[in-house]
Design a protein around this nucleic acid. Structure first.
Lengths: 201, 201
DNA sequence: CCTAAATCAAACATTAATGTACGAGATACT
DNA sequence: AGTATCTCGTACATTAATGTTTGATTTAGG
């Protein structure tokens, strides 16, 4: 496995196992960020030793899993056209991404515990900047509030998305409700509130 | 220590140590939710065995520390007069509580990892209901938006406050900024957004 | 001052995780 | 079919944490 003498491509079963391990790592760490190597190996249907053949340490495995997660997320979010009206673009973005963000929650927590916050941020950065750029554009267009800095609004964006994911996991919210409430709340976040109650004006 | 034969009050040094241990647990777990019993004992200026004399397991210690934290928080929040204008009351509440939430972040994380989310929620319940009641009152008064359920708005409230605490810990936000942005954001959360940009009307 | 209560350090038992070593066996590729 | 590659189970070394036990020592409080 790791014994690959030179640059010959790894054997087919090796590739399959590697993929299975990464998938298992993702789902195990999502359920419990402190899942052990043994649990992950078992869940991948692979011996513990084989796992170490592919990833020589826990750190290495988590790093690879985090990288793959971020890569997949990027692949799904990058094609989105966020160039229209900032409000609609933001709605589109939150609607398309909250589930993805939820899925990557576990691996990110594990990565933070294992690699330190900094290295994780490197990965997370791209998702973050996508939101941030969109908010900046909305601010420049005069559609989003400018009395609060974009960094703060972005932080709140992710806090709310993660909060919604947590509510769903706890069973206090279902996905249909989340899909309805999230965009509305995010819009309220980036918009100046009505001076008084709208209907009283 | 635990050997107390009957109902006689514990000795003075025992009480002192117990308090010191709880304080140490709070500060250690704030810095690192995975801090070991040894670290906590040392930080309390006490032998590891003495610690176990007071709290016979890690679970018990964390439970006690969490209970004390919640109790203190209650003591500081209960006296607040939240009966005025719902907007002002909500501002007052968030302004008074974000620092407390920040302080208790570590112990809550430790408690969640150790006791499971449910038991933590039991403790958190009172703070939760305070927010919830206030939002309900604002909704009934027609000041807060009613197109989203109070449970969702409450969840977002805590998500944002915790998010702010995380930003502060990460050094991306200072306390002055937090004090300025948080109330405004929370108000936007519970208020119907302006139809279009306010100045364009 | 005397006793019960509380403390301490050091040693021990236990559990759980990480990572390594080995040799036998299965499986892919040519 | 033959060979390098990969996998497997088991066993071992190491580290780190949790609790426990013991027995000597200190300290509060009446």
């Amino acid at each position: 496995m790791t014994t690959a003498t030179a640059d010959r491509p790894p054997r087919a079963d090796s590739q399959r196992n590697r993929a299975a391990i990464l998938d298992a790592a993702l789902s195990c760490l999502a359920a419990n960020p402190r899942a052990s190597m043994a649990e992950i190996a078992q869940s991948a249907g692979v011996g513990r030793v084989t796992l170490y053949g592919h990833f020589s340490s826990r750190t290495e495995l988590i790093e690879a899993a985090a990288a793959q997660t971020m890569h997949r997320a990027e692949a799904r979010l990058a094609p989105l056209d966020l160039n229209g009206d900032p409000r609609e673009a933001l709605e589109l973005l939150v609607t398309s991404s909250w589930r993805i963000v939820d899925d990557s929650r576990g691996i990110i927590a594990a990565a933070e515990a294992e690699l330190g916050t900094d290295r994780v941020r490197d990965h997370h950065d791209e998702s973050m900047h996508r939101v941030q750029r969109l908010i900046e554009r909305g601010q420049a267009a005069g559609v989003f509030r400018t009395d609060q800095p974009v960094e703060w609004l972005t932080a709140c964006y992710f806090a709310i998305v993660h909060g919604a994911a947590a509510e769903i996991r706890a069973g206090r919210l279902n996905e249909t409700q989340a899909a309805a409430f999230l965009p509305a709340t995010i819009l309220a976040l980036v918009t100046e509130p009505a001076e008084r109650l709208p209907r009283a004006d």
